[in-house]
Design a protein around this nucleic acid. Structure first.
Lengths: 187, 187
DNA sequence: GTCTATATAATGATAGAC
DNA sequence: GTCTATCATTATATAGAC
């Protein structure tokens, strides 16, 4: 999409990386080729390997930058359950057009090499951030369980496209989720 | 694996179908080719298309037979939360070597055509079975939310391989899950 | 720093012999 | 009913020119 200035290594690398985030999040690791990613970045496929070594190398860096950003998991401990529930319902809405690390994970997890990269990224960034906000959860299974619930909701609503979840009233969905998160994230 | 009798159409078809269940569940729709599936069934790739029209046609039938079976969602309404929690923990154990419809879904959902087939199968079989056991959930979002939790737990524990979930005590995992399912499946 | 051209391998699907 | 042989396409990755 964004054409890099010709002969600017940093800009070219950045353009490929951002095209990679978009492509891998939308289509998954196996669902997109380096040619398409390169074309979106306005360069040829060769430069993807030039700057990232391989498709897998690009994916690793995409996972790193995508998960380093904070998305659904924001807010302070006091209102965490409600905030997470509301953000989750709003971000998984069918018309929402966002690039979320959970979508990246769900659409690439079926590839074993991608799965290992994703596992490391999840534990380093996403899980660590929950423990930052609610340090009392360390040593319990509840942070990981909250991640499972978030991932499963993303999956069923946005990747599978569950009719029940997409026909449901969003306020009701948020209430149900909030009660689950209160149970998981209580201090 | 199982070699069909030569010149027995029904047995050959059945062998391909069972090889398809195994292959698609283990490696996902994009992770396996028709050649591999055919070889596991002891036939050539041509017969896959002969009997199922295409790879997608085979996958549709695989999804149908896989989801028609009952796995985690068994038991009666009274002890449902505990039963589902226990079965989920046991079936997602790292050493368990089962062919579960949730694994089929998680490993193939990234392909849009497979996702649509899976959505239909989930709603026809899995969701319908929850409403069979707990008819009071009809019209609420809680059956779909329970499915999200189950899918997310499968994903994080078995497909991603979360260290936290795999290091946790299984009895504690089951307790946490049971409290969540009690909230979702209460009549 | 970026390109064109290509090597090599795998894919889903089909034609036609037996 | 099943096979061999093949088509057409696509994939990742690399060599070498400019």
């Amino acid at each position: 999409m964004t054409a890099p200035r010709r002969r600017d290594a940093a800009a070219t690398r950045e353009a490929i990386l951002r095209a990679g985030v978009e492509a891998f999040t939308r289509f998954g690791y196996d669902g997109v080729g380096v040619r398409e990613i390169a074309q979106s970045a306005g360069v040829t496929a060769m430069l993807v390997n030039r700057y990232f070594g391989s498709k897998e190398g690009l994916f690793a860096e995409v996972a790193e930058v995508s998960m380093a950003e904070r998305t659904v998991l924001t807010g302070d401990a006091a209102t965490l359950a409600r905030d997470v529930a509301a953000a989750l319902v709003s971000r998984t809405a069918p018309e929402a057009d966002n690039l979320d690390p959970f979508l990246l994970m769900l659409r690439s997890a079926s590839n074993p090499r991608a799965a290992e990269i994703l596992r490391a990224g999840i534990e380093k960034h996403v899980e660590a951030h929950i423990l930052d906000v609610v340090p009392e959860l360390r040593g319990t299974d509840r942070a990981a369980m909250a991640l499972s619930l978030i991932a499963g909701f993303w999956l069923m609503r946005r990747v599978i496209g569950s009719s029940a979840l997409n026909a449901a009233d969003e306020a009701t969905l948020a209430e149900t989720l909030e009660s689950l998160f209160r149970l998981l994230l209580a201090t």
